[in-house]
Simulated assay, not measured.
Amino acid sequence: MQDQSVTVAIVDDHESVRLGIRAACQEQGFEVVAATASVSELWVQLAGRGCDVVVLDLSLGDGFTVTENVQHVRSMGAAVLVHSIADRVLLVREALAAGAGGVIPKSAPAGTVMAAVATLAAGGVLNNLEWASAIDADPEFGRAQLAQRERDVLHLYASGLPLSQVALKLGIKVSTAKEYLDRIRAKYVEVGRPARSKVELLRRAMEDGILAIDERGHVR
């Protein structure tokens, strides 16, 4: 059934892909408001107009990270449908963490892509078993992407040191150490692994290989 209310934009650096998705959208009755090779071009073309869903490729070669592109699209008020090839699991993980609403492989039939667009436009979420299986098989999925200083803070704090001692050992202010700790907790929340207590932080640090406990119960 046609739905003239759904507006779609396409961001892919391959013209043939843009043309193919545009044709499928038009056949479905969706309105294609823009089709560009980069998110920056999309911003210019939309010129402040709204859009329900942006079908976004992950490998644009535009100098921006996946996180930056997804967040930029989200800032325009659109849902993000990632349209990617099947060996991009790490990039898919990053896109989902950044707020993408779903993922469809480029091998999927056009009808599947259009159904995904309709789902996201209606405020729904995708449950794509193919990608879920790929992500579950990836040992890196769900691991918080901590910077080295954040890892240092987590290692010392989860080892049992009070925050004041963590700050002293790292040569930083206690307030700075707390900021790092807040950032660490936020990153674990983002990947669906909250760590509210010190015990939970210890568990996350062990799960992610940031610290380990030897047979005598000593942290290393």
Rank of each mutant, 00 (worst) to 15 (best):
A98K: 05
V70Q: 04
A79P: 09
A195L: 05
V89Y: 07
T112C: 08
A212D: 04
V199E: 14
L170I: 07
S159A: 12
A195I: 05
V189E: 12
L211C: 10
N128H: 06
R143D: 02
R203G: 02
S38A: 12
A134P: 01
D152L: 02
T67P: 01
S107L: 04
T67M: 01
I210Y: 04
K173D: 13
I21M: 04
A137M: 08
S40T: 14
E15I: 13
H218V: 12
P139S: 12
L81Q: 05
A134M: 14
V32D: 03
G48N: 03
V55F: 10
I10N: 04
D3N: 14
E41G: 12
G48F: 06
S75M: 10
L120F: 07
S40A: 15
A116G: 09
V44Q: 15
M114R: 00
K173S: 06
A158K: 06
V166P: 03
V80E: 03
V55D: 01
L170M: 09
A79G: 15
A147I: 00
D62S: 07
F64T: 07
R216I: 13
G29P: 10
L91M: 15
L90E: 15
G171N: 05
M76V: 04
Q28P: 03
D13Q: 00
A23P: 01
L60R: 04
H72M: 12
D87Q: 12
A186H: 10
L181I: 08
R18F: 05
E31C: 10
R204G: 00
R88I: 00
Y188M: 03
S16M: 15
L56E: 01
E200S: 06
G102P: 04
R183L: 12
N69R: 15
A116M: 09
A167D: 06
A122V: 07
D87L: 08
